[in-house]
């Protein structure tokens, strides 16, 4: 299936954490205590977490669960900034990391607007660790591990277009939802889409991510570079020849006046 995506409906999540276990099972990751809970935190051994958030919904205090993992951007920042091309986008759209090519600059970690990639700090030859959207399962036409185990229907797997339609249909059908699909435009769009009845920033999703994708922001700079190199070469070459000649003439004039100087 091309153009894979997942819709996460915050209002349907019961916080069971099945997705975090499925992720660990499928990816052979060691278990730690931080996969779900109030202090859940992504790290090199935990690629997806279910965070608990005590949120104000209007006047009510409510408990909401937010699953976090790699957002699988349509135009991933990490892919653009990786200086060893170790991160690539698969045919299905999964953003996948290749440890064999990685040099370990960690630019992906700092360049990811969601700070998803994590590092194996305690290893001699560490890898960057993050959700891979179970790329090999996608290639076999299966759904990712986390979405396949969700008992409450909070995670829906499908193509991005279908899921966007589905998300907006749900929002239109129920006025309780926030009028926004998170991930539709963030950083040029992501493959993980969120809909919620409480503000996204209360769920740990950054709301200040510009619509323009980071790769295109960088490209706006990079695109000038060849011109600048060529232009600078031409200008400097010409200037160099011109000023050299001018200095030579000046020196000759000065020599004519009797001075004797090195250039």
């Amino acid at each position: 299936m091309k153009d894979c995506a997942v819709l996460f409906d915050v209002t349907k999540c019961v916080g069971c954490g099945s997705c975090t276990v499925a992720c660990k099972m499928w990816n052979g990751l060691p278990y730690e205590e931080n996969a779900h809970g109030y202090d859940a935190k992504l790290d090199d051994k935990t690629w997806t977490v279910v965070e608990y958030h005590d949120v104000k919904k209007g006047k009510e205090d409510v408990l909401r669960f937010a699953k976090h993992q790699c957002m699988h951007c349509l135009e991933p920042s990490c892919v653009a900034v990786c200086f060893a091309k170790a991160i690539t986008v698969s045919d299905e759209g999964a953003v996948v990391y290749d440890a064999k090519k990685c040099v370990g600059c960690r630019y992906c970690m700092i360049g990811c607007p969601y700070s998803v990639p994590k590092y194996e700090w305690d290893k001699v030859f560490p890898s960057v660790m993050k959700c891979r959207l179970c790329a090999e399962k996608l290639a076999k036409n299966e759904s990712p591990a986390c979405t396949s185990v969700c008992p409450s229907g909070a995670l829906t797997f499908g193509t991005r277009d279908d899921l966007l339609d589905e998300a907006w249909a749900r929002i239109k059908a129920d006025s309780g939802y926030i009028q926004k699909v998170y991930g539709e435009t963030e950083g040029g769009g992501t493959r993980w889409l969120y809909i919620s009845d409480v503000p996204f920033k209360d769920l740990g999703l950054p709301e200040d991510i510009p619509t323009k994708s980071i790769p295109s922001t960088i490209h706006d700079y990079t695109k000038w570079k060849p011109g600048i190199f060529v232009g600078a070469a031409a200008v400097f070459g010409a200037l160099g020849l011109y000023t050299k000649r001018r200095v030579k003439i000046e020196n000759e004039q000065r020599q004519g006046e009797g001075g004797k100087e090195d250039v």
Binding site: A22, W26, N27, D98, A99, K100, K137
Partner: peptide
């Protein structure tokens, strides 16, 4: 290579 080595 990290990931995909497990079981469900």
């Amino acid at each position: 290579e990290p990931g995909g080595s497990g079981w469900l």
